[in-house]
């Protein structure tokens, strides 16, 4: 149910990315409209993480254009920070600030980056902690929480910045199996509310039920881009078929 705004929220045009002589991204062209949910999958080392890390410039691209909500990503620090305020990111390894309590984790960037007063920042923090269903953990340090709880905190921390776009970089890959669902539930809720999302994940059940489009990457290229039904039931490329048979066979 992609909306048809005139301007896509994310545009990647002819993006190449090199790590030394290794080409991590090859001529990536991607458009994401407001409210779209994209799942990116592909084998390890295929460039999927690198691609979404380029969107908030945790990696810089070598050629091509990346335009987020009308702002092109360049070397200008000001532009980068303006874009990063609009783009929330959730990492595989949670990356909570270990020396701060949960609620402080959620308040820090609000206060520093958005210049929101302390009391209001705390209120927002508690609001999102309730949404990810762990308000009672607010005063604990991250180490006291389970992996699933930590990842839900990380999602809440990104949401506190009121982003336009959420990027998920394998958010459930580091979790014990019994904790995966509690994180996916939060992500499904978010999708229902119309958040624009790009998720790198191997959770194919999630991809099938939530994604508007699935992007399959291999060796730095986008090999296939299709709606879930077509992607799973009638993939075009041989590489996609091979990948699907590997991950769905057991």
């Amino acid at each position: 149910m992609s909306t048809s705004d005139a301007q896509p929220l994310i545009q990647m045009q002819g993006v190449n990315k090199f790590f030394g002589s290794f080409q991590a991204l090859k001529n990536i062209n991607l458009e994401v409209r407001k409210g779209e949910r994209i799942v990116v999958c592909g084998p390890s080392g295929s460039g999927k993480s690198t691609m979404i890390r380029c969107i908030n410039r945790l990696e810089d691209h070598n050629d091509g254009h990346i335009i987020i909500d009308g702002k092109e990503l360049t070397d200008q620090v000001k532009d980068i920070n303006a874009v990063r305020r609009e783009v929330g990111m959730v990492f595989q390894s949670f990356n909570l600030f270990p020396h701060m309590t949960i609620v402080k984790n959620l308040m820090l960037a609000q206060q520093l980056v958005r210049k929101i007063p302390k009391a209001e920042a705390r209120e927002t923090a508690m609001h999102y902690l309730k949404r990810v269903k762990i308000p009672e953990q607010a005063e604990k340090y991250p180490i006291a929480l389970s992996g699933g709880q930590q990842q839900r905190v990380a999602i809440a921390r990104a949401l506190c910045m009121k982003p336009e776009i959420m990027l998920f970089d394998e958010p459930t890959s580091a979790l014990d199996p019994e904790m995966i669902n509690e994180v996916l539930e939060v992500m499904v809720d978010l999708a229902k509310e119309g958040m624009t999302m790009i998720c790198v994940t191997h959770e194919m059940g999630f991809a099938r039920s939530v994604a508007d489009r699935i992007i399959f990457m291999d060796e730095g290229e986008i090999v296939e881009e299709a709606a879930p039904a077509q992607f799973f039931d009638n993939p075009k490329s041989e590489r996609t078929k091979k990948f699907l048979s590997q991950i769905l066979s057991h």
């Binding site: 990063r84 909570l96 960037a109």
Partner: peptide, 27 residues
Amino acid sequence: VSKGILEAGSALGMSVRQKFIYLTAPI
């Protein structure tokens, strides 16, 4: 100080100076 923690700070829009004062220095 783990790189991931600083990346999380960057992703939230924190400046180099803010990351140093609030993340790197205390850890």
